[in-house]
């Protein structure tokens, strides 16, 4: 126990400030009114669905919870059921074998059903594109509010995408 406490003290708090929202990532503008967004604030529950990624995006989503990015420190946490989730974080081109599971997860969510697509594949199908086994981008299957490009997008970009979805649009 002593060793653990000593190590914690030696590490200290290393969390960095989060990046600001970026309106250019938004695909569906003005879907939620400012009042709803203010109520939601940053107390956000996210359900992650990997709809067919190479698993690179999952590595970076995991990294958002490391002590440097400390996503949970912003009040944003990943939950185990879509019924508890305000937001769906979807990676990958949507494989046809995952199409129904993704739709059902989306349907199981309560409103406002925010969706953030992560990575080049989620944005436009990426290198896999559309083929006999792949539906391509996430927006081909469910409505997408915010799409974050990158292969994979870095943790800051993912956090930026999440914050954009719950920020009040300016201008």
């Amino acid at each position: 126990m002593q060793k653990i406490l000593f190590q914690i003290a030696r590490t200290g708090i290393i969390s960095e400030p989060a990046s600001a929202a970026d309106e250019s990532l938004r695909r569906i503008p003005g879907r939620l009114n400012d009042e709803v967004l203010r109520l939601l604030g940053r107390a956000l529950a996210i359900r992650h669905v990997d709809a067919g990624s190479c698993n690179g995006c999952e590595l970076e989503i995991h990294a958002t919870n490391n002590p440097y990015y400390n996503l949970e420190g912003l009040g944003i946490k990943f939950v185990a059921s879509p019924r508890h989730a305000d937001m769906l974080l979807v990676t990958g081109p949507v494989s046809r074998n995952m199409e129904e599971a993704l739709r059902r997860t989306y349907e199981a969510m309560p409103e406002p059903k925010l969706v953030v697509a992560i990575g080049d594949c989620g944005c436009d199908g990426g290198i896999f594109g559309e083929n006999y086994a792949s539906c391509g981008r996430v927006a081909n299957v469910i409505p997408v509010d915010v799409a974050v490009p990158g292969c994979p997008p870095e943790p800051n970009a993912i956090i930026q995408g999440i914050l954009t979805a719950v920020s009040v649009a300016r201008g």
């Binding site: 494989s95 074998n97 599971a101 896999f128 083929n131 006999y132 086994a133």
Partner: peptide, 9 residues
């Protein structure tokens, strides 16, 4: 579930 046609691609 993640089969996305890599070999064909």
């Amino acid at each position: 579930y993640k089969h996305k046609g890599i070999e064909k691609r």
